Amino acid sequence: MQHLVLRTTLFFLAFSIAARSLARDSEKETFVIVHGATAGGWEWKATGKYLENEGHEVYRATLTGLGERYHLANPDIDLDTHIDDVVNLILFEDLHDVVLSGHSYGGMVITGVINEIPERIKHVIFLDAAVPNDGESIWDMFGSGGPRNDSRIENGMLLTPWVTEEATPPHNTPQSIKTFSQAVSYDNPAAKALDVTFVAFIPEDQSVEERSQSKAWRRAVERGWTIRTFPGGHVAQQEDPRGVANLMFECIGDVNTAR
């Protein structure tokens, strides 16, 4: 009788372990991460590593003329170039059911991507990112019509205060102003039907209420997207890469509200 109980116990233990393993395998996702302005895929290396350690497939896109592709930098690069970078990454790697995320300026890029290939996308995550309307550039969105007062333009390239080309790589680099002045298309009904999460990074000196007044947050609410917050500055992925990685996985189950 004791042997029967032992065998039964071992059977259910083995079944339980196998079930948990199967559940973990079924949760493996394909992430495509798009960085912000002047940065590169390097900025998401630590976050991507945490996702990969959990068995997920991670592609950290680096947009043309930035990061390790800085040798290709020129003033003719525009927003369409960067959208094509990510679209072609997804198509040529033959990716499906993609969890697509964009940080900061990356929100402009992923908006164009989902407008072109919504059938390849499972979920979209705007990480403290721009949320443009159809026919709007990032400068249009912020009503600036040009760069911030602390930035300058040289030879068709935008130089921000945090760009120090003399620094040891990896570092931020100048970026073509056409990427900021060109409007994005967001008119595909299939793209608008995708489930989207908007994540606002909340720095210590700002309240959630204050942060909720941003144009990006308000547009996300208007579109019925899920709103999440995460403690940290605008580059929270560098401050707490594990936390951001966990958050990105948690976002996948978010579903838009009816609008």
Rank of each mutant, 00 (worst) to 15 (best):
L127V: 12
L158H: 04
N149C: 00
G143H: 11
L127R: 02
M141S: 14
I138N: 01
E136H: 11
E154P: 02
K122R: 15
E136G: 04
L127I: 07
S137W: 08
R148V: 09
K122F: 07
F142C: 01
E136D: 03
N115G: 08
D134M: 00
W162C: 01
A130G: 09
S144D: 05
I125T: 14
T111H: 06
V131G: 01
D140T: 10
P132I: 06
A129W: 00
T160I: 07
A167I: 01
A167S: 10
E165S: 09
D150Q: 03
D140R: 14
E119R: 05
A129K: 08
E116S: 09
P118R: 11
A129C: 01
N133Y: 08
I138L: 14
T111N: 00
E119V: 06
P132E: 05
I138C: 11
T111W: 10
I121D: 01
E119I: 04
E166C: 01
A167T: 02
I114L: 10
P132F: 04
E165D: 05
I125L: 08
N115W: 06
S151I: 07
G135Q: 11
W139P: 01
K122N: 12
I117A: 07
V124K: 12
P118F: 05
F126D: 03
I125D: 13
I138Q: 07
S151L: 00
N155M: 00
I117D: 08
G145A: 12
H123L: 11
T160F: 15
K122A: 15
G145W: 06
M141P: 00
I121P: 02
A167M: 06
I138A: 01
K122Y: 13
A167Q: 10
E136K: 02
I125V: 15
N149Q: 14
E116P: 03
E136A: 05
G146R: 01
A130N: 09
G156K: 04
G112N: 04
V131L: 05
N149E: 15
D134F: 00
R152I: 08
V163H: 05
I138P: 00
E116R: 15
V163E: 04
G112H: 00
I125E: 05
N133L: 11
D140Q: 06
D150Y: 10
D140H: 04
G146A: 02
F126M: 09
W162P: 02
I117N: 12
E166V: 13
